[in-house]
Write a protein that binds this DNA or RNA. Sequence first.
DNA 1: TTCTAATTGAGATGTGTTCGCAGATGCGAG
DNA 2: CTCGCATCTGCGAACACATCTCAATTAGAA
Lengths: 149, 149
Amino acid sequence: MNWGEQLREHDIRITPQRQLVIETVERLHHSTSEEILAEVNKSFQGVNLSTIYRALEVLEDAGLVAHTHLGHGAPSYYIVDDSEHIHLVCNVCGQSECIGEGVANELRVQVHSQHGFDVDMGHLSIHGTCRSCTELAQFLEPAQIAAAR
Amino acid sequence: MNWGEQLREHDIRITPQRQLVIETVERLHHSTSEEILAEVNKSFQGVNLSTIYRALEVLEDAGLVAHTHLGHGAPSYYIVDDSEHIHLVCNVCGQSECIGEGVANELRVQVHSQHGFDVDMGHLSIHGTCRSCTELAQFLEPAQIAAAR
DNA sequence: TTCTAATTGAGATGTGTTCGCAGATGCGAG
DNA sequence: CTCGCATCTGCGAACACATCTCAATTAGAA
């Protein structure tokens, strides 16, 4: 099923702006609303930021895109496809990496059986310290690492 | 070691404002910056919101408090003590519950061995759908559940 | 083609957080 | 005890991100 049908199923009109947003989110893989706006405006200037937000909202309702919070700032939007993934976000350098959802299956099962809670894996961001920052921490203070990145 | 020594160790001055913030965060268990301000101002009016933020920042650096993102809005601050915990946040009703960190131990070990990534458990918020919202979803639309809470 | 409800652009508004600066204060040295 | 000064605070402005209002436009059913 393509995204056009998927939108019509949710009684969501198909507009050029929404098409642009979907294509852009797909192309950029992970992007903030501002980044999406900038990219969309490269081909069609005049598209408004509120339109981007509204498009992202309906597309998220329709299950076509999802978002997760990487840094402290704006959330990152990405296309929902067959390969769900989890984000590891480093608190020191701010970099993030995607990993398969396999490592959290045990967690998902336990949380569901013990608490009846259904985990949304796509939204899961794991914060901590990445390998290289852990190694650097032997020599530098966190602030110096953050400054050097 | 009490918090006074812990602050001095980090070359952080002890002030009434910081003492108030620590005590308030401890008392409220989970609270936003605005809630802390309101609570602090009950006993001492005139304390400024930026002071709260700055206090929370240094206290976090010193490892006395930590924060996690529960809803979409302001982060929640809490005292770091011996009992680390994880937050389950329901995307439908917005409620959150604390659970022991045990369920994520497997995850922590795997993420570390496979990716060299050191997970910050206190900051881990797991989003998804709670038990009661899963049950309600048989009868109601998500929007109706959110409205009814 | 016509009609209407959904959608859009533009800008105002809201919420949460940080900044810059002048004055106040904790606290170590004397 | 009191002095000196780096740090801290209050205040207001600025900032980042998100949402809302409203008139004009438009997708898509009839």
